Amino acid sequence: MADDKIKGPASYFPSIEKTYGRPIAEWKALVRGRMPARHMELVAMLKADHGMGHGHANAIVAHTLAEQGE
């Protein structure tokens, strides 16, 4: 069913894992290890330190911060 389709930042996760070769849990742990920090600082870290594209980095940061309640 179309209602079962993953939406939001998590919809990027399969592509992120395939492209960068690491599970999402590892990316989230990297983000949590740099907290507290602003959203865009975390995005910039993933882009600069790990060569991640902006959309993928933003998806990981947004999902991680949402889980943290921030």
Rank of each mutant, 00 (worst) to 15 (best):
M35L: 14
M40H: 13
V61T: 01
L46K: 07
K18D: 13
E67D: 00
E70G: 14
P36A: 14
A37V: 05
Y12G: 02
G21D: 05
R38A: 13
E17G: 03
A10F: 05
E70P: 08
G55C: 00
M40D: 14
H54L: 08
I24E: 10
G21L: 12
V31C: 08
P36T: 11
A44F: 02
G8T: 10
M52P: 13
P23F: 11
S15I: 14
L46I: 01
A44R: 11
I24Y: 13
R32E: 08
M40C: 02
D4W: 09
I24R: 07
A66L: 13
M1Q: 11
L42P: 03
V61Q: 02
V61W: 00
M45F: 13
D4G: 02
S11W: 01
Y12H: 11
A57D: 00
G69H: 03
G8M: 04
G53H: 06
E26C: 00
R32P: 07
V61L: 04
H56R: 08
M35I: 04
V31D: 11
V61K: 00
K28V: 03
G8N: 07
M40W: 13
A62M: 14
K28G: 05
H56Q: 12
P36I: 15
V43C: 00
A44C: 05
G21T: 07
E17R: 06
H56A: 14
H39N: 08
H39M: 07
I60R: 05
P9I: 06
A48N: 13
A10K: 03
R32Q: 03
A57R: 08
A66E: 14
A25K: 12
A48H: 08
G69D: 07
T64H: 01
A37P: 01
R32A: 04
G69F: 02
K5H: 08
E17H: 09
